[in-house]
Simulated assay, not measured.
Amino acid sequence: MTVVHLEFLVEEPSMEAFLRTLLPRLPPDDRGFEVHPFQGKSNLLGKLQARLRG
């Protein structure tokens, strides 16, 4: 099984910045990704069900 797109749900904007810097440097180059930042764990957990239903 080959993964071609990854979705990241992160608790804070600093992790978003880190992932957006790191992930393009990792092979393979054809893998897509999206990072969805939230304002802390409670915000992420509160919106998680709707995001997964998506």
Results as ranks from 00 to 15, higher is better:
residue 4 V to H: 14
residue 37 P to K: 02
residue 39 Q to H: 10
residue 40 G to R: 08
residue 19 L to G: 14
residue 45 L to A: 11
residue 1 M to R: 12
residue 24 P to V: 08
residue 28 P to Y: 05
residue 28 P to F: 04
residue 35 V to G: 01
residue 12 E to D: 14
residue 33 F to Y: 14
residue 54 G to K: 06
residue 2 T to G: 12
residue 15 M to K: 14
residue 27 P to I: 01
residue 1 M to W: 08
residue 51 R to M: 10
residue 26 L to N: 05
residue 8 F to Q: 02
residue 44 L to H: 02
residue 50 A to N: 11
residue 18 F to S: 15
residue 1 M to Y: 10
residue 24 P to W: 03
residue 42 S to V: 05
residue 48 L to A: 15
residue 45 L to N: 11
residue 16 E to Y: 01
residue 34 E to N: 09
residue 37 P to M: 03
residue 52 L to R: 04
residue 31 R to L: 12
residue 41 K to C: 08
residue 11 E to Y: 01
residue 49 Q to K: 14
residue 7 E to V: 15
residue 50 A to I: 14
residue 46 G to T: 01
residue 12 E to A: 13
residue 35 V to P: 00
residue 52 L to H: 03
residue 25 R to C: 13
residue 50 A to R: 13
residue 41 K to T: 13
residue 21 T to R: 07
residue 2 T to A: 13
residue 26 L to P: 03
residue 5 H to M: 06
residue 28 P to L: 03
residue 43 N to M: 07
residue 20 R to H: 07
residue 41 K to V: 09
residue 2 T to E: 15
residue 43 N to G: 10
residue 35 V to E: 00
residue 12 E to K: 12
residue 2 T to C: 08
residue 2 T to K: 15
residue 35 V to H: 00
residue 34 E to K: 11
residue 43 N to S: 15
residue 53 R to F: 07
residue 47 K to S: 09
residue 49 Q to G: 08
residue 19 L to Q: 11
residue 42 S to P: 00
residue 4 V to L: 10
residue 29 D to Q: 11
residue 49 Q to F: 06
residue 49 Q to L: 10
residue 46 G to I: 01
residue 18 F to C: 12
residue 22 L to R: 08
residue 33 F to V: 03
residue 30 D to L: 04
residue 52 L to F: 06
residue 52 L to K: 04
residue 48 L to C: 12
residue 5 H to T: 04
residue 16 E to R: 04
residue 25 R to G: 10
residue 19 L to C: 14
residue 7 E to I: 14
residue 9 L to N: 02
residue 29 D to E: 11
residue 44 L to F: 01
residue 24 P to C: 11
residue 53 R to I: 08
residue 13 P to S: 08
residue 19 L to H: 11
residue 22 L to G: 04
residue 6 L to N: 13
residue 12 E to H: 10
residue 41 K to M: 09
residue 30 D to Y: 12
residue 54 G to Y: 03
residue 43 N to D: 15
residue 4 V to P: 02
residue 32 G to V: 03
residue 26 L to E: 04
residue 27 P to V: 01
residue 14 S to H: 10
residue 13 P to M: 06
residue 35 V to F: 02
residue 1 M to I: 04
residue 47 K to I: 03
residue 35 V to R: 00
residue 40 G to L: 04
